[in-house]
Amino acid sequence: MPLDQAITIGLLPNYHPETITSVGNAAGDGARMVLVSEELQQELVQVLAKVELLNMGEHPSFMDEFIKALFFPHEDLLWFES
């Protein structure tokens, strides 16, 4: 889908399309990098030690905000200002 169409339906915020750059399969590339690098594996262990579980379902307004975010275009137009 072209970026301007993704912006029009609210899939992406209303940024100028020329400021958005596709990075391809960044998650897959990062996973491959960690698999072949002991240095990155050690860094990953340090990062994972800092990860904390946050149960969003326990936040009082989470469900309302989540439901509003499901619609295209998004119900909260402040997220899509020009």
Rank of each mutant, 00 (worst) to 15 (best):
E65F: 06
Q46E: 07
V34G: 10
K68H: 10
I67N: 11
F62A: 01
A31H: 06
M63Q: 12
D64F: 05
L53T: 15
L35S: 11
V45N: 12
D64E: 15
K50G: 13
M56W: 06
E38A: 00
L54Q: 04
E39S: 09
L40K: 03
S37I: 03
S37R: 07
P60R: 01
S61C: 00
Q46P: 12
N55F: 04
M56P: 15
M33E: 15
F62I: 10
E58Q: 12
E52W: 06
Q42A: 07
G57I: 00
I67Q: 10
G57Q: 00
E43Y: 03
G57L: 00
M33A: 13
V51F: 07
F66K: 08
Q42K: 04
L53Y: 12
E38Y: 02
V45E: 14
F66V: 11
D29F: 07
D29H: 05
R32M: 03
Q42I: 06
P60W: 02
H59L: 10
L54R: 02
N55T: 14
V36E: 12
H59M: 10
L44C: 09
I67M: 08
M33F: 07
V45G: 11
L53F: 13
K50A: 10
L40T: 07
L48K: 01
V51S: 06
E38D: 14
L35R: 02
K68A: 13
E58W: 03
S37C: 01
S37N: 10
G57E: 08
S37T: 10
F62H: 10
K50S: 09
E58P: 15
R32E: 12
